[in-house]
Design a binder for these strands. Structure first.
Lengths: 302, 302
DNA sequence: TCCATTCATTCTCTTTTACGGAACGGTATT
DNA sequence: AATACCGTTCCGTAAAAGAGAATGAATGGA
C-alpha cells in the first residue's frame, strides 16, 4: 500500500480546520476536489477517516491516529521549507556536531579547533543529553556526537562509536599541600568531588578505591565537567578530574595536580551513523587511524 | 512555496540508494521520470539537492538538510501505513493516556477504573518521563497525561493542566512505635525516606521542616512511588508518603500511619492539549467540575 | 412547518501533472 | 577506440487532480 502524501495533506488541513469548505478555501481548491481526494485516501488506507454525521465531519478513531502522524509529518515539512526556503545561500559544507552537555568544554574546543580554521566549512554545535543527541543523530540532524561513553549500534540504529582520545585523570586540589603519602593512599579519608555515575571515570575510580581499600569522603558527585571545575576552584576540596579541564588554573597555580590515578582514564568517543552520503570531512576525520587522532589530541589537550 | 511530498519521496529514495537508476527500479518508474521530478523539487526549493559530478550524484549540503527532514517524514509515514494498513479493525474509541512513571500505581489504577468498565472504549497506557510524554502529547500520540505537577502551556504548545485530585501526605512507618511527640516535632532527628526534588510534596515538606525547625535525617530520596512503597515496607525507616500508596500495607497492619503532614499535599494533574476533535470521552472527563473529580477520586482512592 | 442556507458528495468534463521512450552527453572500463 | 554505464532533456501520451453543476441531507430562522 502506497501512501499518497498529498491526500494526507488535504486530510490534515481538513482535520485541523474541522470544515471541508473552509479547508478548501485555504487550500485554494474546490470542495468537490477536496472531498474526492479525501475519499481516495480513505480507500487507500482501508479506513474511514471521518464519520459523516449529516453535513458535518467528525474524526474517526482511525482519523485520530492518522492525524497524529500527519501532524508530525507536516510539521517537519514546514520546518524543511522554512530552512531551505528562507533564501539564504547554503553553499558551504556544514558539519553538525552534538556534544554531551557534561563534557569538558576544553575538550570540545580542542576537537573543534582544527575545523574552525577552515573557510569552506560551517560548524553547528549542539549540546544536550546523550539520549537526546542520539535521537537527532538518527534523524540525520546531526553528523557526529562527542560523548564520554561509547554506544553499541544495533540493527535499527547503525551507530559507530570510535574512541578519539584518552587522557589520564588526576587528583586536583588547592596548591601547597604537602604530599606525605602517594596516590592512592593519599585518598583515604580525604574530601573529594567526583564525577557522577554516568561517567566512565567514576567506575574505574570506584574500582581503584576498592582494590587499594581506601575510603575517600565523597562531598559531591557532579556530572558536568564545567561545574566540577568551578567547585574545584572555589572550594578547598580535592577533585577527581582530567587535568585538561582545569588547564588554566594549573597554569596560573590556583590549583595543583597531585598526580595521576593509575588505570583511570577519561575517554572520548565520536559517535556517527553509517550512511551513503557522509560529509567528506567526516569521512576524512573518521578514517584516520586512532593514533593520529590521539597524537593530534595531545597536541591541543595540554 | 509549497512542498511537493511526492517529489520529496523520490528524492529520499534516490538519496538512500545513492543511484538514480537503482532508485528508479525500486520505485517502478523510469530514470527519466525520476530525474525530472527531482529537478522540479530542486526548482521549488531553490537549491540544488544533488551535485552532478559526471555520471554520479553527490548530496549537496542543502540535500543533506532535506534528507534529514525527509527521513523523519517518511519514517512517520511508514509507521502510519503500518498501523492503519495492518488490516485490524479500528472501530472502538481509543483513549491514549500517558502516566509519569514515578506516579503511584494505585492512583493510576483509580483513575482508569471507571474507564475500564466501558465496552465501547479501548485504553492505551504509556509511562515515561514527563518530558517524553509531553512530546508525545504534542505529536497527538497521547490524549492525556497524568502527572504530579502542572505544566504551563504556551503559544507553541497549548497545554491545559487541570488538577484532578489532591490527597494528604502522612508519615508512614513500622507499626507499634509509641508516639510521644506530635507531628511535626516527631520528625526531628528521625530517619526518613522522602520524595525526590521533582515532586511537589518535597517542596512543601522542606518548607514545613524549615518552618518548625525540625531536622530529620534523610536516608533516601526516591522519585518513584512504587519504590518508596517497597522501601517503607522493607526497611525500618519512616517515609513521607500519601497513605493511598501503601493502602494495602495499612490495611494489613504491616505499616502504620503516624499522622498527616499539615499543608503538605500530593496533587495530581491531567494535562491535555486543546484541539478540534477531542475524543468525546475526554471532553466529558475534563468538562466535569473539579469537585466531582475529587469526589469520585476519594471514592476509589481509599 | 416550511423555506433558505449551509455543507458534503457525486457526476462529467477540462486542465495539469506525471510518465515512458528515444536521443543525447558525459565518464569510467578495458 | 569501443563499450557499457548513468543521468539529463525533449516530446507525445496516460493518469491524476481540478472545476463546476447537480444532488441531497441537516441546520436554523421566520
Amino acid at each position: 500500500m502506497k501512501l499518497n502524501y498529498h491526500h494526507l495533506y488535504y486530510f490534515w488541513t481538513v482535520a485541523r480546520t474541522g470544515h471541508l469548505t473552509r479547508a478548501a478555501e485555504s487550500l485554494h481548491v474546490s470542495q468537490s476536489a477536496l472531498s474526492g481526494q479525501i475519499r481516495k485516501l480513505e480507500d487507500a488506507l482501508g479506513h474511514d477517516l471521518f464519520i459523516r454525521e449529516g453535513r458535518r465531519l467528525k474524526l474517526s478513531e482511525a482519523g485520530r491516529i492518522a492525524f497524529g502522524y500527519a501532524e508530525e509529518i507536516f510539521k517537519q515539512g514546514e520546518k524543511l521549507t522554512a530552512v531551505l526556503g528562507s533564501g539564504t545561500e547554503i553553499n558551504r559544507e556544514t558539519l553538525k556536531i552534538g556534544a554531551v552537555a557534561t563534557l569538558s568544554r576544553n575538550f570540545q574546543e580542542g576537537f573543534l579547533r582544527p575545523l574552525l580554521g577552515r573557510e569552506d566549512l560551517e560548524l553547528k554545535l549542539v549540546s544536550g543529553t546523550l539520549e537526546d543527541l542520539l535521537r537527532r543523530l538518527s534523524a540525520h540532524h546531526l553528523d557526529l556526537i562527542l560523548s564520554n561513553q561509547p554506544i553499541q549500534g544495533d540493527e535499527e540504529n547503525p551507530w559507530r562509536s570510535r574512541r578519539i582520545a584518552r587522557q589520564s585523570v588526576s587528583i586536583i586540589g588547592p596548591p601547597g599541600d604537602e604530599q606525605s603519602t602517594k596516590i592512592p593512599e593519599f585518598l583515604d579519608g580525604r574530601s573529594l568531588i567526583i564525577p557522577g555515575r554516568e561517567n566512565n571515570i567514576r567506575h574505574a575510580f570506584d574500582q581503584l578505591c576498592d582494590y587499594h581499600n581506601v575510603r575517600p569522603r565523597i562531598v559531591a558527585e557532579v556530572d558536568d565537567m564545567a561545574m566540577m571545575r568551578l567547585l574545584a576552584r572555589d572550594t578547598r576540596h580535592y577533585a577527581v578530574l582530567p587535568p585538561v579541564v582545569v588547564r588554566d588554573e594549573l597554569e596560573t597555580g590556583s590549583l595543583e595536580d597531585y598526580g595521576a590515578l593509575p588505570g583511570v582514564y577519561e575517554e572520548f568517543y565520536a559517535i556517527s551513523i553509517r550512511r551513503r552520503f557522509e560529509p567528506t570531512l567526516l569521512t576524512e576525520l573518521l578514517s584516520q587511524p586512532a593514533e593520529e587522532l590521539l597524537t593530534r589530541s595531545s597536541n591541543w589537550s595540554f
